[in-house]
Design a protein around this nucleic acid. Sequence first.
DNA 1: CGTCATCATTACAACGATGTAATCTGTGAG
DNA 2: CTCACAGATTACATCGTTGTAATGATGACG
Lengths: 338, 338
Amino acid sequence: MRATVKDVAARAGVSPKTVSNVVNGLVPVSERTRSKVEAALAELDYVPNLSARGLRNGRSGVIGLALPDLSTPYSAEVAHHIVEAAHDQGWSVQIEETGFDPQREHDLLSKARTNLIDGLILNPVVLDESAIRVGGTLPPVVLLGDVVQHLADRVWVDSLAAAKDMTLALARNGRRRIAVVGADQGRGSATSLLRSRGYREALSEMGIPHDPRLEIGCDYWTPRGSAEALRAFLADNELPDAFFCFTDSLAIGALSVLADAGHRVPEDVVVAGFDDIEDGQFAVPALTTVSFDKKALAVNALRLLTERMGSPKRAVVDVSLPYRIVERGSTGPGGSRG
Amino acid sequence: MRATVKDVAARAGVSPKTVSNVVNGLVPVSERTRSKVEAALAELDYVPNLSARGLRNGRSGVIGLALPDLSTPYSAEVAHHIVEAAHDQGWSVQIEETGFDPQREHDLLSKARTNLIDGLILNPVVLDESAIRVGGTLPPVVLLGDVVQHLADRVWVDSLAAAKDMTLALARNGRRRIAVVGADQGRGSATSLLRSRGYREALSEMGIPHDPRLEIGCDYWTPRGSAEALRAFLADNELPDAFFCFTDSLAIGALSVLADAGHRVPEDVVVAGFDDIEDGQFAVPALTTVSFDKKALAVNALRLLTERMGSPKRAVVDVSLPYRIVERGSTGPGGSRG
DNA sequence: CGTCATCATTACAACGATGTAATCTGTGAG
DNA sequence: CTCACAGATTACATCGTTGTAATGATGACG
């Protein structure tokens, strides 16, 4: 049986509350009493019961992190930074996977683990934010990424602008037949929608005709999903000048298919990604991509969450992170790793 | 304010305990009462307070998962499978990163005793299991991976045998100067130690002299760490016949450096990895590796944890997962993706 | 020497849910 | 009509911690 404050109190010859005072250090305790209690704490190997503390204090010290799929490198990197940042602030992180299922996003918000978690960082995938329109009692929530509505605090990168910039960069590089991988398939992925839109805006700005056949959809945003989609595409179409993949994971799948098919990158076709995941830097060739500071994403999300807990009714805050196009070998000879 | 059983009870005109009975469904409740209560539950949007429940029941429904670094694809895939499997059984997962720090591994174990988590799945990196030397009240723990001592339940893959098999496979492939990447540097990484040992056993079995210079250590087990180590190695040494990298992440870094240096894989040198991560299948060329079922790893770990909770004093259980060498393009022309 | 201010310590209640044991309701047998 | 009995429902206590308010101890000062 674990020791409780009561046991420690008995052993130290004081009251439970005094033990609590020593443990928490918020209330002054005399030197003599403190040392007695500390001895008892050590002897009994006391560990506070966080359930009880959470019940009493109304706060558990745990935040939730909901991501579509933890196994994708992007999610993993984000999770890593969030866990690190949370740890620095004394929070623990409970992970949930939404599996691209709007229902699960919704469940997490309304029912789910409320009162075991003090707040939620949610990376949604669907445009329809019905999930977030929640009656009254929304727990403190911070959204990550491409979400349209301004119903909760959010940290994001301007997908549309970045996709547009990347497309423009490819076009200025002399590419005309630019295909995208991960195009919107009407399933409401905000990311897909916004990046598609940026792509089209860039085309129109450059006076490049828009060819719908060059918008390649993927059922799964993984290297495998991309590879399958691309193989099918290549079977029916001529090789375009460029593939702009909406994530680095998609791009890695693309590089693999292109290599297998004997197409040289960047000589025959160039490839670009989005997210700047670690493995993209070490792809062959290294991946040109849209880069942004994922640690800043995490730190800002946590900051917003903390602030929101402090002042539940302040106006919604929106933090937009800067991004930049990083050119590496997959779009030309000049690129460097790192 | 969130509704409590009390509020629901008042609204339904019954006692709090009856509400609890309806919610939990363990005690029979008459049809009439049940529907009244269910209506009240819905109207008030009742969500049970898990802290209170955890306090009362002594179980929180949360398990901890401790990994060295969540951002590595291997950890991410494992975490994904664990979260999925846990979700299926109604558990939530709290993630902790140990950052390769034995102290944090130790802290986690004591934190596990705070009753906020009912059990812990721990992927340790250090050989010295002082962390696990357990006073009396260790929570249910399952270890993942290469750990030597048998102090807790464990799910693992025989690293030594697998590394040996892989080395033998490379040797039978005609390779003599086989380098390893991720070699033990005396820092006590169990994984590194065991795989190094398997490598040496294979060499000696094949009558290949052991050249210590071919054991390349890495400060970080990431593509970047591997790339840095390999660049340094290549500056001072002739190209070996093969690089056996102790993880796929290391191998991805290796492929990248080799490509940059103009060495062709597999023509000039072959490369093999370990873990069979998704990105390895889509590396260029696709990565030969030691493959095992990571979902089975997760499912077994969870099963052991559940069983251990049920019978705290049963003998330690050790589950060894089968592995196989998957040959892909990085070690020869015959390989296929998938 | 008594009184009051100051500070440390204590008793008690409460957070919300639920197991236990007691109470209540309704049924059917005698 | 009474009594026993099964089943549904309830009152109460409890899990471990900590805020509140009351108590106790110490010392200063008139």
